[in-house]
Design a binder for these strands. Sequence first.
DNA 1: AAAATTTGACCACAC
DNA 2: TGTGTGGTCAAATTT
Length: 417
Amino acid sequence: MAGSESFEALEVQNNEQKRQGNEQNNGNFVEEEELEGDYIEEEEESQLSELQQLVELPSSQVEEEMRDGQVETLTVVPSSSTAILSKENDQHVDDLAGLKGNSALKTHVEAEFKEQVGLSHQEVLGSVTAQSAKAQTQYQLPPSACPTSSSELSLTSVTQPISSAPSPTPPEKRLSPPEVKNACIPEAGHQSSAKLKALHVPVARTSIPDGYNWRKYGQKQVKSPKGSRSYYKCTYSDCCAKKIECSDHSGRVIEIVNKGMHSHPPRKNNSTRESRSGLSVGPILQTTVTERTVRMLKDSEPVTLSIEPAQETPTVSERKRQSSSSSDENKETQIKEEDVGEPEPKRRLKKGNLECSKANLKPGKKTKFVVHAAGDVGISGDGYRWRKYGQKMVKGNPHPRFMFISCFFCVFVTILI
DNA sequence: AAAATTTGACCACAC
DNA sequence: TGTGTGGTCAAATTT
């Protein structure tokens, strides 16, 4: 298809640029792709590096985080946090106070990196899940950083690269679908519409660049978060992994829910290409996908992870102020990957689901696990260091939900409701 | 012609 | 029990 071709062409170009940039700004990535087997991690590194460069994060905090293996953090502040302020847990307010440092990021920078951050995070997660041990090394996480067991890291499906454009993005040629329609709507302060268009054209057709091939098998209009949901299945023969992409009324992907785990590794070629493409497309997406969350409905039980029961976490007011200029909610990028022990209320249990998600139903369990990182860092009252990686408004809850990921002890995150 | 996507209908579950 | 919603199916359509 012409679209694919142009897409790859663009990809190549972007990759080339990326490489050059990395070489110039970060010698660590010269070796990128040296080992094909590690391409995922390397790409992640590269992407992270790239992001860092782009963000121009000279802040010591960022450096510190990088050292700590929190590279993906990118201090991108969920602008949505602007809308949030304190809630029930004042404790977290103090805890989060330390996040102020991150707010130093320029608001415009925030906007530009939202999507990229998403990618980065996703990539990181994917790597972590796929090769936890390796990931620890790759991300320079201290040995103690990820004591989590492999089972805990089984959030494989998290590999979903957020950056990967509105995932199952409709074919380029189809302009009618909301997703595409909106995908081409540039946001103020970003690249020219012309450029955006040109870049959007090559969006992958049936699968998002996460190394997996997805087939859309359904779409529904939903009321509550006014919008639609697209249902995808992994096309791999015996794989029962599914994902649900939630879009808002304007067609923007606001959430991706992965259900089930892939029974196979991501396709190598695709993975390489797609992840790269995802990165290359990042800048584009940032203008199209303003808010993106990835929620994981984990098949396996959350197990030992310490779960924070519904906690209302206030956000950093400081940040809020600073990002207020760009507080445009539409611009914020929330990257959220939660692993939910609790099944969707009305999940159907039959067929594939019965087979593949046997363990994913934990009635009564309200806790969620999120694998991801993001902008804010702070020591919470529980003694752990948490990094806020996103927040979102949830139906039925007047307060936004905040997601935090532990920075040092595991890659799992707690969702505070 | 084959594969993928769209879309209305159906079913199951929760309230 | 009825209604609303979420998830899936499958025919029709598109690529």
